[in-house]
Amino acid sequence: MNLTQPEQKPPEQKPVLDPHLKALENEAIFIFREVAAEFENPVMLYSVGKDSSVLLHLARKAFFPGKIPFPLLHVNTGWKFEEMIEFRDQVVKNYDLDLISYTNPRGAKENITPFTHGSARYTDIMKTEALLTALNAGKFDAAFGGARRDEEASRAKERIYSFRTPEHKWDPRNQRPELWSIYNGMINKGESVRAFPLSNWTEADIWRYIRAENIPLVDLYFAKKRPVVERDGMLILASDKRLEIAKGEKLQELWVRFRTLGCFPLSGAIRSRAQNLDEIISEIQTATVSERQGRAIDRDQSGSMEMKKREGYF
């Protein structure tokens, strides 16, 4: 794990960010502060991935020298990569964070797994339902997410402050106008807002920022020889004991890394030799496929992200 100790004092010397990244950073900090000031009980979704890592870094910057004035929420499906959980716990310890980890108890009770229930139904229960239960339990009126508009066509339509009904529904046909950077945070009891400080960041911006700011990441993003099996056109990591290798499937050792991280049975690895940030940045600049290509959840049908989002998925 390449997690460094947190600085007690800010470092004296650091190269300045280029104007493009600086503008994105300033915008995100503004959003963090605005939400923290306007809402009674915010929470930050933390998924341990690269976008969450950037989000967390920006939150620390926004409230410095104070602490982050809200908890982090990790919706743990129970099927995350082991490395993710280890990394998460280390981050929480190093930065002294207040983390809520929530797992939908239906998973264990009804034995709901990505193998037995299909990606759509599994996601519905273990991610969406879990998220909504956790948000209700905490009575959170604002939730930060690390979603970016460049990820997917329905995300490209979402506001920075995305209004949700008491049932957490998103109505994409009826979003509030959002002029300049004047966000309307007025809601009634039970309603909430999802806030997206990284809305205007691209995948390349995220990586360049991680490099510029030296942000620690889960090792799975960097290429290594790893055991994988090929299933439904995806390379699945075969290090978790719960993965049963079916007849006809071949366990192979390949140079791979992950472009996005989620639940291990649903996240496809890509073949890559990019072992450090410079190599990753040059790899994504020449990539011919998009970053969500490895995600099973997006494949079910066109518009499926929008449907999930309308039901409350992040």
């Binding site: 329905s154 995300r155 339509k157 994409p172 046909r173 518009g303 449907m307």
Partner: peptide, 13 residues
């Protein structure tokens, strides 16, 4: 990217 937009062939948001 919205379903309603694709169905109607117009941009909504």
């Amino acid at each position: 990217g919205l379903q309603a937009e694709r169905e109607q062939g117009i941009t909504i948001d």
